[in-house]
Design a protein around this nucleic acid. Structure first.
Length: 427
RNA sequence: GGGCAGGUGGCAGAGUGGUUGAAUGCGCUGCUCUCGAAAAGCAGUAUGGGUGCAAGCCCAUCGAGGGUUCGAAUCCCUCCCUGCCCGCCA
């Protein structure tokens, strides 16, 4: 949700900002609805005031045994008028809310302009990618040759965009998830959470999956939703709360399966486990005071990068341009890991500063020490990192063409029972 | 799934139709007293919104949404949640 008062004060700023995302002018429609709604509300409240007064008078008259008939007639008329106004007000308010809830967050000033992903700006690189290697095999080939990755059976039991991992590869994915969770909770200060995977509609609205991205989500028959990311649950843990200033920063992390319909991506990344209906992801969420969100954003991105550094995977970090950013974000850093078979970097983490758009929807506020008014918190989320894609990156970057095996990164060895390398078993 | 009991302010807990946004206690904030502290006393202490330059005034909110009524925290209906018992089941 957006700050209507700020929008009233400076509509041009909003239109100019939304234009950076390629949107046409929105504010005149918003302001018209807003003015209509407010004048209806003012009118309605005047009637309510008179009704309340008259009702009290009726009570006073009756308690003295007097005749309150004239007053009762007056109230009856007021109620008729109120019903009409209430309905008009409700319609305007619904229209306004619906319009506002479908408009994306304001883009931060230092975000580069540009219509699409070709205008994102690279900030830094780590590691040395194996470029143009003839030996590069993709993770599907590697996994199937090892007999540890099975898309056919997955399709048989669950349909497209599903994966079955076996044996050491299943363990490797688990090892990756545990490793990431341990680093974030032990070294990065995030509290580990094991959350529900099924949430209600209010929660999905809070983090902006609803109403606009309804088609990307799996809905259950009883009106709940499978989470598309742990961000949804972690962020909403503070919904409808008024926090004390001392509560910050709140840092939470979780590893969960994520469920996505991938409605708009038919034909994209159809091979392998890059884009699945279900995948594991370790997610970080921070809730902070507004003045701290920018520093927290850098910090969170560092935490995600640190995972890849420890895994010794080559990556680069980019800042998304205005046209490529997600709906809720003011500013987003993507971390892209090197995928040898594709000879390019692919997204493995996305760290976003959502400003107050989610907190306004969730009604998450805080009060400064001694202050009377509440303010909205800032929320941030970042992958730390996508576990399935990390598995792909390990398989391809640590592939040994000599024997078709996969070396285990040093930091994962303790999680793999000391195994140094996954190799094909003699059958 | 069946049955019972509940959901009131930061917390505890009154309130079963009429100045009740809500008693009382605790907590918290300020002041008085004190060398200081404690104790005690006094005052204050929800959120959202409308209107106004402002002081202020007004509207809404007692789990949520409807309904009855001149008037609802209080009565009726639906839903949600919590606790307990029975059944079933990872």
């Amino acid at each position: 949700m957006h700050d209507l008062k700020a929008l009233r004060d400076n509509p041009a700023a909003y239109d100019q900002n939304w234009a950076r995302r390629g949107l046409s002018s929105q504010t005149s429609e918003i302001l018209t609805l807003d003015e209509d709604r407010r004048s209806l509300q003012t009118e309605l409240q005047a009637l309510q005031m008179r009704r309340n007064e008259a009702s009290k008078e009726i009570g006073a008259v009756k308690s003295k045994g007097g005749d309150a008939h004239a007053l009762m007639v007056e109230v009856a008329e007021i109620k008729d008028n109120m019903a009409v106004l209430e309905e008009q007000e409700r319609v305007k308010a619904d229209e306004l809310t619906d319009l506002l809830s479908r408009l994306p967050n304001m883009v931060a000033d230092d975000v580069p302009d540009g219509p699409d992903e070709d205008h994102n700006v690279e900030l830094r690189r780590f590691g040395t990618p194996k470029i143009g290697s003839n030996a590069a095999k993709d993770h599907v080939e590697i996994g199937e040759m090892l007999g540890l990755m099975d898309f056919e059976t997955a399709a048989k039991v669950a349909g497209a965009r599903m994966t079955i991992l076996k044996g050491a590869l299943a363990r490797l994915e688990r090892a990756l998830g545990l490793f990431m969770l341990d680093v974030h909770s032990s070294e990065h200060g995030y509290t580990e959470i094991n959350p529900p995977l099924l949430v209600n509609s209010d929660v999905m609205y809070g983090t902006t999956q609803l109403p606009k991205f309804h088609d990307d989500q799996f809905e259950t028959t009883d009106g709940r939703w499978l989470i598309p990311t742990a961000e949804v649950v972690l962020t909403n843990m503070v919904r409808e709360e008024i926090l004390e200033e001392g509560a910050f920063p709140i840092r939470l992390c979780a590893m969960t399966p994520c469920f996505r319909k991938e409605a708009g991506s038919a034909g994209k990344d159809t091979r392998g486990m890059i884009r699945q209906h279900q995948f594991y992801k370790v997610e970080m969420v921070s809730v902070v005071k507004p003045e701290d969100s920018e520093a927290e954003h850098q910090r969170m991105t560092d935490c995600a990068e640190n995972i890849l550094k420890k895994l010794e995977l080559p990556f680069r970090t980019i800042v998304l341009c205005a046209g490529d950013m997600g709906f809720a974000s003011r500013k987003t850093y993507d971390i892209e890991v090197w995928v040898p078979s594709q000879d390019k970097y692919r997204e493995i983490s996305s760290c976003s500063n959502c400003g107050d758009i989610q907190s306004r929807r969730m009604k998450t506020r805080f009060k400064r020490a001694g202050a009377k008014d509440t303010e909205f918190v800032h929320t941030l989320n970042g992958s730390g990192v996508a576990v399935g894609r990390a598995l792909v990156a390990i398989m391809e970057n640590y592939y040994d063409p000599a024997d078709g095996g996969i070396w285990i990164p040093d930091v994962l060895k303790p999680y793999m029972g000391g195994v140094e390398k996954i190799v094909k078993l003699n059958t």
